[in-house]
Every structure is written in C-alpha cells, then in structure tokens.
Amino acid sequence: MEIEQMVRQYVNRNLLFGESQIMYDDDTSFLAAGILDSMAVMELVAWIEATFGMKVDIRDITPENFDSVNRLAAFLRRCAAPAAVGGNGRP
C-alpha cells in the first residue's frame, strides 16, 4: 500500500472514526482542521513506531513532519527503514 494511503487510512479510522464531517486533502493541516491534538499526536507516534519499526525522536515531532498527509509521508520516507515504506525510504 502506498504510504500516503496508509496514513489516510490510519487518520480516517483512528482519529476521525470513519464517518467524519471533516473533509481534508493530502496538504490539509491536521491542526487547523481539528484532526490532531496533543494526545492524538502521541497516538500517531505510537502507530508509526509499531507500523514502521522505527523510534521517533521527540525533536522530530514538529508540524513540518507531522501536520499533513504529505508531510508525514515525506518524513516516513526520509526516516523509516526502506523495507517498511515499500522500498522508498531513506537512500
């Protein structure tokens, strides 16, 4: 599965609970759209660590890395093990 799709699926199921009134695209700010709060960020981190087999450094939990589908996907491509992100990870 494409990494963006995995992120969207996680957000839809676990943060928006599937039947959301909230419309968002891959560049929508999670914070501005009310998708993410501080606790949800930690849920997201736990999911990333479990799914992509990586440890997220607290210094990396920034809006630049986490605040939209595209930003998170780019962060995962940079930092996760290549196998975990379908071979498109860090070179």
């Binding site: 709060d37 501080s38 939990i61 920034t62």
Partner: peptide
C-alpha cells in the same frame, strides 16, 4: 500530567496552542 504534551517538541506545542 498530560503525557501527550510531555513528549512533544516546542514547535508542535507552539503549533498546537497558537494555531489560529
């Protein structure tokens, strides 16, 4: 006492509390 905030970077704290 809120675990989510304890483990969040200053940049995210700022984004979270100052957004809009």
């Amino acid at each position: 006492d809120i675990p989510g905030l304890r483990e969040t970077s200053p940049a995210f704290l700022a984004a979270f509390f100052l957004a809009g």
